[in-house]
Nucleic acid binder design. Structure first.
Lengths: 352, 352
DNA sequence: CAGCACCTTGTAAGCGTTTACATTGAGGAG
DNA sequence: CTCCTCAATGTAAACGCTTACAAGGTGCTG
């Protein structure tokens, strides 16, 4: 182990000067700094993060808490954040927060969740926490507050904390309005099931946006046109099949709450012999890698940039720059591709 | 901050005893242990990881190095590993290792890569490293060796290091043999481009397995039947379209090197008006979440279990149990679904 | 030329644990 | 009863760095 003492000896200065030098503090003469750097390089010296953390109270590590490791969206966000943080010299430690489904308190997921708040995060391994899409109960919120760490939420409106998020109502409103402007009136909505997704207010919010756009257009919203599924291709595929097979409704457009769901909808339509967009327009939300491939019209929310942005925010807060905005709305944009077009003349899409 | 001293005071013992107690060392009387635990709980004491690391040299943190954050496969592996490690009390820190494409040395990716080896990993933040699918050059290998940390590779055969991996030749051989056994003789192969994927020996290995199976069946392999693309749905989609449009070849089956590629192949076939499996059998490798949805016959390599397994290995090595196997072959299994069936009578699939 | 301000550097006191070693006391063997 | 062993605990020295504070110089001002 090459310690700071060795570097100090080689450079002929004290360890304090080495520390200051390497930390880029101003009060070191250029000549000394150069000598120190040369010595450090020669010895291949790198600070020990444990010692540094213990002495300074800073870890140069950011915790990234997310509800799922196998969702495309979260990974895109993580990617953006990781890159920015790494470039700033921060490591990223991953914490998986299983949904607390509230049903079964003794269930392992709940125990894991409690453990995260009671032990893991309290080990002081992180300077700051980024929490994606999570809704906390009061006890958990309190636990985080006690940590006294910088905490910023992305997506889920973490109460009383800096957070970034889409204006989900506006997003859904805009998407629906796009379909309305194409002449669609029977617009279905595929979204997540609010019951199951306790950690996740988004489905309800998006649905509200969808309904308000309809209302504004003077269209009464039909509960039969709203279907729920989990946020997967397969889930939406099933939901869409059922929707399209239902003789009581004849949607000419589907607004899905995520791109993966929208892809499921497209595949379902195809398998029922419907053409997209001739028989059915489909749009999603996200800006998924595959959106282009499927020609999917979508509301792009630039997930990778979201990650970057949240990282920036954390970095500037750590740098002591007072960040005022407690809630920041993220940008989004409608990207028009080939999965939406003007409404076909009214007919039952199942029997062309 | 509630320190160990406070706990010691409250329990009426020395800090040494508290430390021993909480670490579960044997030489503490049950009565004392109980008192210490009660005190710790009352004060909500949790050890400071920095102090503990500095004193003990152990970090309780594992580094997970991977070439990509947006590949389904890596995330599945990560998920399995993260869960197992978290349950063992370890945190997981993510390191992104951009491919060193060798072309442009000054390119930022290369700089980032160098930095990872020269600085980041040397900060001693991890007790062990798990490296997924990466090929190192000599300098990098040396850098890792110098770390003196436990290192295990998954996938990419990290030279001279414990590693887990599929027998890619056997996998491809078995897949191809499956198609042969269904009567196919014109079997195409969609795989990664070995040139571009410098960090990735797998495409070549799988291709070898594919060819050896053909050879064993007395079939001469036709270079026109082998197409390359990046490992994405979209890439394979294009490659498959070109393959199927090529008048010189008439494949009745496609073996794709990954499930995502296989899905691309299925979608391409559909878009050309071919039915899967009637006109074209398709199979992949991985065990993708979506394989079931697409009825994809595949060789499941249980990525999540791979993550668990690699985590287990690391944990037992850290526990000091001498692990002997330097290379461990991972299990896999053919899962037959509806995307493969017996070969159709010979004809050009493009003009039925 | 004294006095002052400021820049650079060194000194040394932590930071909160772990752990080698010393100490104490109890129980068992002889 | 003495001596030895061993279990349980305490003492105190690291662990490798950061940083408040002190000290020494330099150059300027008046």
């Amino acid at each position: 182990m090459t310690t700071i003492q060795r570097v100090a000896d080689l450079a002929g200065v004290s360890t304090a000067t080495v520390s200051r030098s390497l930390a880029g503090k101003s009060s070191v003469s250029p000549a000394t700094k150069e000598r120190v750097e040369a010595a450090a390089k020669e010895l291949g010296y790198v600070v020990s993060s444990a010692a540094s953390s213990l002495a300074s109270g800073r870890t140069r590590n950011i915790g990234f808490i997310l509800p799922d490791l196998d969702s495309w969206f979260f990974m895109a966000v993580l990617k953006g954040a990781q890159r920015m943080l790494a470039d700033a010299g921060y490591d990223v430690t991953l914490y998986h927060l299983p949904a607390a489904n509230g049903l079964d308190v003794d269930e392992p997921g709940t125990a894991r969740r409690a453990r995260l708040f009671d032990e893991i995060l309290r080990r002081q391994r992180c300077d700051a926490l980024i929490a994606v899409n999570l809704e906390l109960d009061e006890r958990e919120r309190e636990a985080l507050r006690e940590l006294g760490r910088c905490l910023v939420g992305l997506g889920g409106p973490v109460h009383g904390v800096h957070s970034l998020g889409l204006d989900d109502t506006a997003v859904a409103y805009d998407a629906t309005t796009h379909l309305l402007s194409l002449g669609h009136t029977a617009i279905a909505h595929i979204t997540g099931d609010a019951e199951f997704e306790r950690d996740f207010a988004m489905p309800a919010t998006r649905r509200a946006g969808y309904e308000s756009a309809l209302a504004e257009a003077g269209i009464e919203s039909d509960p039969l046109l709203v279907r729920t599924a989990d946020f997967t291709i397969a889930g939406a595929y099933e939901a869409t099949k059922q929707l399209l097979a239902d003789p009581h409704v004849h949607p000419t457009a589907v607004f899905a709450a995520s791109d993966e769901m929208a892809i499921g909808a497209i595949l379902a339509a195809r398998d029922l012999g419907l053409s997209v967009p001739e028989d059915l327009s489909v749009m999603g939300v996200d800006g998924h890698d595959l959106a282009d491939f499927f020609g999917l019209t979508t509301i792009d929310q630039y997930p990778e940039q979201q990650g970057q942005r949240v990282a920036e925010l954390v970095l500037s807060e750590l740098a002591g720059e007072g960040v005022e905005a407690v809630v920041e709305r993220l940008p989004y944009a409608l990207v028009q591709r080939s999965s939406t077009s003007i409404a076909p003349p009214l007919h039952s899409p199942i029997t062309p």
